[in-house]
Design a binder for these strands. Structure first.
Lengths: 134, 134
DNA sequence: CCCGCAGTCGACAACAGTTCTCACATGCTC
DNA sequence: GAGCATGTGAGAACTGTTGTCGACTGCGGG
């Protein structure tokens, strides 16, 4: 049975009032700073439960940290600036169809996919920022 | 000054004879297995030097492991069976163009992307295997 | 309203991948 | 060759994440 606990609700609430991607550790620190007593393990568990429920999206940063974000249930992909980390949601029905078709051609069923696009956003490019730090 | 050492040459050679993505640990294990004495730290250093030189591409797996491939490798994506782990390489020029175009529309430059397709392959589907273990 | 207990919590240990440290070895320049 | 900056490698340290286990607590039943 899945229980409705104070902690789980609290983690959920954090993502409701935050925008963009945030790491589990950041959420934990933020909650502790706000006077909310919660364990790090619990944050990880809650976050993973939310991912399982499809309420959060997770991706990995270049540094190997997992970051999470509440996103619309509609299927979409992410366009991430590798300099400032800004993220935009993009949709591509053509890609969905392509992935399904290619998988089907290889005899695969029950198909899902992950797609992330990385680049340098206009602002960072103007600022001369690239992958490397000045 | 950058020195030409046996170890650095050896790491470079490994990626020349391998295709696709491989982790630093895997490269290290492979070299040790081949009788090549080299330290793990050295593999990491060599790999990062190669990334800095633009000779290797690096991405992160979902498990948080960094994997590398030689840039000259033809760009392709993976179709992975979630039951048996079998992997097939697929290409989709349309997807490449789509990703570049979408990123461009958002003002992003220097664009790369990662795409993995997951499904159940024909054999596993016939065998009744699904995501969950029996 | 209270009980029982399965699901949950949280401090901490364990773990994996990666990076750092430092004494020692080794290319490169002269 | 000799000198010396640079690279090496074994292991420790560090980081993010997951597992452990005794204590705790929603929640349904009595």
């Amino acid at each position: 049975m899945i229980r409705n606990t104070r902690q789980r609700t609290a983690v959920n609430a954090v993502f409701e009032e935050l925008e963009g991607f945030h790491s589990a550790q950041e959420v934990h620190a933020r909650m502790r700073a706000a006077g909310d007593s919660i364990g790090l393990s619990t944050v990880y568990r809650a976050v993973q439960a939310l991912v399982d429920d499809g309420e959060l999206d997770s991706i990995r940063t270049d540094a190997g940290e997992a970051i999470y974000r509440r996103c619309s249930t509609r299927h979409h992909h992410h366009l991430v600036c590798r300099a400032c980390g800004r993220t935009e949601e993009v949709e591509g029905p053509a890609v969905e169809r392509w992935a399904d078709r290619v998988a089907g051609e290889h005899g695969f069923v029950d198909v899902t996919h992950t797609l992330e696009i990385f680049g340098t956003c206009a602002a960072c490019h103007r600022a001369g920022a690239t992958t490397e730090t000045p």
